[in-house]
């Protein structure tokens, strides 16, 4: 059964263009010019329930825009989105009960509150009773080893502790699909490994579908069994991790050492850049 289905998804942003200097500023007032940027261009894919998918691409490829359309943050210009049978553009609230989101670059916790108070707040947001929230906090506290800092204000936590709390906040309502947008950004290797293990555990124990975007090859390699690479708003590769590595094994002959996943991804990015003339 599909957890996510996107059909011919497109999104264009209109950006004002200004020539350099004061003259350019004045000209922009008198003759405003607008440039259209195609962030996502006819993207179609589906994700099975319980699957762990890496959705990657270089900066500005359209990854975050796609995630934002899947979660109901942005409205697509055209195409269809279906997440767990719900259309995010029509039933955003209903969908929000079934999904969790972690944006590594955007914090959703209240920094002056303790993680415990934050989790209570998120429990209320997802309509959990006090008893349900307490039970869930106890369960996740143990799983994510939050005991030592659950009553320390978030602003006093380390980045790794904060990300763990962000994950717990997004899991308080047992989401069926978890969208992770660069969840390990800025973390040290040990904490990264720790977070990856926790994400893996969630998928294993609760059959949670994981939709991951990351620039960290370690995240992709250790978590995902399937990879979608996007560039300039289009899908350039959709393959299983196993198949992707197998296909690139032939290239080992021309390289002095075996290709790592990072090499393979870099190869694909470079080929795409040459093709699009960037």
């Amino acid at each position: 059964m599909y957890a996510i289905k996107a059909e011919d998804l497109s999104k264009t942003f209109r950006v004002k263009v200004k020539e350099k200097g004061m003259k350019g500023s004045v000209r922009a007032i008198l003759h405003p010019q607008v440039k259209e940027i195609q962030a996502v261009d006819n993207v179609s894919f589906s994700v099975e329930e319980g699957e762990m998918l890496a959705f990657i691409g270089p900066n500005g490829a359209g990854k975050s825009t796609t995630i934002k359309m899947l979660t109901g943050i942005l409205y697509p210009d055209s195409g269809k989105v279906d997440v767990l049978g719900i259309d995010p553009t029509k039933n955003r609230k209903q969908l929000a009960y079934c999904i969790g989101t972690v944006f590594g670059q955007k914090e959703q916790l209240w920094t002056h509150l303790t993680p415990y108070d934050n989790f209570r707040f998120f429990g209320a947001i997802y309509d959990l009773t006090d008893k349900e929230t307490e039970m869930r906090i106890a369960e996740l506290k143990e799983c994510f080893e939050l005991g030592a800092f659950i009553n320390t204000p978030v602003r006093n936590l380390s980045l790794g502790q904060r990300i763990r709390c962000e994950l717990v906040a997004s899991l308080i309502h047992r989401p069926r699909v978890l969208f992770l947008d660069e969840p390990t950004i800025g973390l040290d290797p040990v904490v990264k490994e720790n977070i990856r293990e926790l994400i893996h555990q969630m998928n294993r124990d609760y059959h949670t579908t994981i939709f991951l975007t990351s620039h960290d090859v370690g995240d992709i390699e250790k978590l995902c069994r399937r990879i979608i690479i996007v560039n300039a708003g289009q899908i350039v590769l959709d393959d299983s991790m196993e198949h992707l590595k197998k296909c690139y094994l032939e290239k080992e002959n021309v390289h002095s050492s075996p290709l790592s996943l990072e090499d393979i991804i870099m190869d694909i990015y470079r080929a795409e850049r040459r093709a699009t003339g960037e």
Binding site: A96, I99, F103, Y126
Partner: peptide, 10 residues
């Protein structure tokens, strides 16, 4: 900065 409010069921 509206993103975090848009992913909440409220």
């Amino acid at each position: 900065k509206l993103d975090s409010y848009l992913v909440q069921p409220k």
